[in-house]
């Protein structure tokens, strides 16, 4: 097992772990977003979906375990690589003139921290319910309505989706490069998929707090 430790110690190994866990988490957020849209089918459809997920039992916990492990690896690799990068240039430039860095690339670190704060809050808000004003177990639809009915909470959700858009744009477009796939035929496809996901997923998520905020669902 020594090779796994050696792999993870290397910068490239950690980048590959970050990309692979990122790919898994992208799949999760895409699925999570489509599930959320059931809220527009009404209370019964959304609660039935929630009960279906809760009814998965062991499978649900397996999924949660994989997601949590992925998230922890994603965050740990990002954190340690950031520290390494900071140590790699202690004395900075008086003048800098970046030419290639995109806005989304620059947002990865602060956006990632914002997303992490959001994810922790979101789990305690709508899954555990401990930071929710009126959490009722088994009433997912009602919990979303009362939870996102608090306007600053809805605004926080929307801000996090802004960070998610930037994170997906750079993350998806660069994860294939990190996994070693770079080809003139595929690169434009990856860029388009990244842009599409960066629009569709956060907008799909944002539709829920926006709808609650503007009273389109109740």
């Amino acid at each position: 097992m020594g090779w796994i430790a050696g792999f993870y110690r290397s910068t490239i190994g950690r980048k590959i772990v970050m990309a692979a866990t990122g790919l898994l988490l992208v799949g999760f957020v895409a699925a999570h977003m489509t599930g959320n849209l059931l809220i527009f089918r009404g209370r019964d459809a959304f609660d039935a979906y929630s009960h279906f997920l809760q009814g998965l039992g062991g499978l649900l916990w397996l999924g949660r375990g994989i997601l949590l492990a992925s998230l922890l690896l994603h965050v740990h690799s990002a954190w340690t690589l950031t520290r390494q990068a900071q140590a790699a240039r202690i004395d900075g430039y008086a003048e800098s003139d970046p030419r290639a860095a995109t806005r989304s690339a620059r947002a990865m670190r602060w956006g990632g921290v914002l997303l992490l704060v959001f994810i922790v809050y979101h789990i305690f808000h709508l899954t555990v319910g401990s930071v929710h004003p009126d959490f009722r177990r088994g009433e997912a639809y009602g919990n979303v309505m009362t939870g996102l009915g608090v306007s600053w909470v809805a605004l926080f959700y929307l801000a996090a989706m802004g960070a998610l858009a930037l994170h997906l744009r750079h993350g998806v477009s660069s994860l294939f490069q990190t996994l070693g796939v770079n080809h003139p035929h595929l690169n434009p496809v990856f860029a388009k998929v990244a842009t599409a996901l960066a629009f569709v997923v956060p907008l799909g998520f944002a539709a829920v707090p926006l709808a609650v905020l503007f009273g389109l669902v109740r």
Partner: peptide
Amino acid sequence: MDMEGFGGCTNFGE
């Protein structure tokens, strides 16, 4: 490369 204290790649393209 890691031993020399270089950072990792974040695909900025600079």
